[in-house]
Simulated scan of single mutants.
Amino acid sequence: MSIHLELRSYRGGDRHRHDYSQILLPMQGAMRLDVEGHRSVVSSNCVAIIPREYEHDFEPSRDCSMLILDVEAEAFAGEAAPALLRDAVPSLTRVEPWLWRMFRQLGAEVEAGACRASDAARMTLAGLQLVVPRTMPRPLSRAESRVIDLARDGGAGSVAEMARTAGLGQSRFHALFRATTGQSPKQAQLTRLFDEAADRLATTALPVSEIAYGLGYQNASSFNRQFRRRFGLTPSEFRAASRSQ
């Protein structure tokens, strides 16, 4: 393996360890990570390191996807490894916005098949040479734990209701929700809604208008426009494509 890069979607976790180091770059959503008792939230604009043989577990948000590099000890063969990997300790480090945009673009190109994973891995490691690690992921505050729990439920309820559940004011809740998940509460709600819409279109014969009304839309045309903006297909086209696979 030496170095293996892959874009992965996560739906659940289990406590385990592996004999290689792992670099996590979140492309979407967030993940609550526990590395031998060190708990943190991996979300937008940060990179997490899980060193080899460290036992860890994770809880992803519903829409979590990560650009993952699995790196074996002999991968660099005399070359300088990124500082993030030299100390062999868990870390969670913020990334400069311009560098983060580069990582996001690499992830998008890998997902689209426009870039070979091996080339993307080399470019990602080159970018990581510019990141100075911050060791010991900070523990989650109680407020952050409540917010990430709400995010894992897909942002159900109004922002005011979620803020009350979290015991926070709306402005503080909104800021903390974005900081811990990389999305606003409204974006999380739309993700949950369209995940449900896509599932109903693919697995039921319900009319599109009935699906739209069932999800809270006042008219089907508004649902159709937003669905197409998100997926690039109308609901009917999405349904036909899912059934032809």
Rank of each mutant, 00 (worst) to 15 (best):
E6K: 11
C64N: 04
V147G: 07
V208S: 02
P137N: 03
E53Q: 11
K186V: 12
T165R: 15
L7I: 15
H174K: 11
E6H: 10
G107R: 10
T165Y: 09
I148L: 08
E210C: 01
S118H: 04
A240G: 01
K186E: 14
L150E: 11
E111K: 14
V41M: 11
A220L: 03
V71R: 02
Q105G: 13
N219G: 02
Q105D: 15
A114T: 14
P60A: 07
S184R: 12
M1W: 10
A120I: 08
D149N: 13
P137D: 01
W100T: 12
W98M: 15
T204M: 03
R8W: 04
Y54A: 03
Y217S: 05
D87I: 00
R15I: 03
R192P: 05
R172M: 03
T203D: 05
T181E: 06
L92Q: 01
D119Q: 13
I68L: 09
D70H: 09
E111N: 08
C115L: 15
N45A: 13
P60E: 08
L176I: 05
A205I: 02
A166V: 05
R142F: 04
E79R: 15
A73Y: 03
A188L: 07
A80K: 14
H16F: 09
N219M: 02
H56K: 00
A197M: 10
Q183E: 15
F238S: 11
P207C: 03
R15W: 06
P97G: 09
V95M: 07
E111C: 07
E161I: 04
H38F: 09
L106T: 12
R228Y: 08
V42T: 06
L99R: 15
Q22E: 15
D119E: 14
G12T: 03
R52H: 05
R230M: 14
S171Q: 14
M31H: 01
A175S: 12
Q218S: 12
L84F: 00
A30K: 05
A179G: 04
F231N: 03
S65T: 15
L206E: 14
S158C: 12
S145N: 11
R122L: 09
M102G: 12
S242K: 14
M162T: 13
L233H: 11
S118C: 02
V35K: 01
S184Q: 06
I3H: 04
T135P: 01
E109V: 02
T93N: 01
L215G: 08
S145C: 02
V42Q: 06
F194M: 13
M136A: 08
I211K: 01
S9G: 10
A75C: 04
Q189E: 15
C46L: 07
W100R: 13
T165K: 15
R225Q: 15
R11Q: 06
